[in-house]
Simulated assay, not measured.
Amino acid sequence: MIFDEYAIKSLIRPVPGFPKEGVTFRDITPLFQSPKALRMVADSLIQRYIDSPVTHIGAIDARGFLIGSILAYELNRPLVLFRKAGKLPADTLSASYETEYGEATLQMHRDALSGGEQVLLLDDLIATGGTFLAAASLVRQSGADVYEAAAIIDLPDLGGSHQMQDTGIPTYTLCAFAESER
């Protein structure tokens, strides 16, 4: 199946004013309601990483879990969950970060990584980059490395992908929405 960026972008629903006025939320649920589009997204990411040295898939709460679990299964790699504070039951590592709406904390199980792993971080989109940067901090606290941070969507005007690249985190996205498209 050939990747069609226009088809993917057409299935990402803009929701103006959510979760607050002035923000246009990019809703990926219509994309997941299309088996063809979901397969196109998953297959594109699988092909990118099938021959990579990635040892673990790091899925970021909560929409990153959707595509992360598919990649972990298809690439036969362990899945590491990065969750909002208080959602993981065992001993955790924590990293706080700034969001567009305030401050948040991301956690992962302390024993999820032991050191030396190459982790692919996945989420639905890159906005300010705070969540990815927090996840990368947790990976590094564990002695592992971030291979790349991947998402379906980049919002380049918010600067997250540039900030991530400036801190040594390679990024990859399937599509981008510029300010003029919001």
Results as ranks from 00 to 15, higher is better:
M1V: 10
I2D: 14
I2H: 12
E5V: 14
E5T: 14
Y6R: 15
A7P: 05
V15K: 06
V15I: 14
P16L: 02
P16Y: 08
G17W: 05
G17P: 10
F18A: 01
P19I: 12
G22P: 09
G22D: 11
I28P: 07
I28M: 07
I28G: 08
T29C: 10
T29K: 09
L31W: 01
F32S: 12
S34G: 06
P35S: 07
A37Y: 12
L38G: 13
V41M: 13
V41C: 11
V41G: 07
V41R: 09
V41H: 06
D43Y: 05
D43F: 12
L45I: 00
L45R: 01
R48K: 15
R48Q: 13
S52G: 01
T55D: 00
I57C: 00
G58P: 08
D61Q: 09
A62N: 01
G64N: 01
G64M: 00
F65H: 01
L66N: 02
I70L: 14
Y73F: 14
E74S: 11
L75H: 00
N76P: 01
P78L: 06
P78I: 03
R83N: 03
K84A: 05
A85P: 05
A85D: 13
P89V: 04
T92G: 03
L93F: 08
S94W: 00
S94Y: 00
S94K: 14
A95T: 05
S96A: 13
S96D: 13
E98N: 12
T99M: 08
E100Q: 14
Y101F: 15
Y101C: 09
A104H: 08
L106Y: 05
Q107Y: 02
M108T: 11
M108K: 10
L113Q: 07
Q118N: 15
Q118C: 04
L120N: 03
L122I: 15
D123A: 03
D123N: 04
L125K: 04
I126S: 00
I126T: 01
T128C: 02
G129E: 02
T131Q: 13
T131F: 04
F132L: 11
F132S: 03
L133Y: 02
A135P: 01
A136L: 02
S137R: 13
V139H: 00
R140V: 06
S142A: 14
A144H: 04
A144M: 12
E148M: 05
E148R: 10
A149S: 11
A149K: 06
A150Q: 03
A151T: 09
A151R: 01
I153D: 01
P156H: 07
L158D: 07
L158A: 03
G159T: 10
G160I: 04
Q163N: 13
Q163A: 15
M164C: 05
Q165T: 15
Y172Q: 11
T173Q: 10
L174D: 08
F177V: 11
A178H: 15
A178Q: 15
S180C: 12
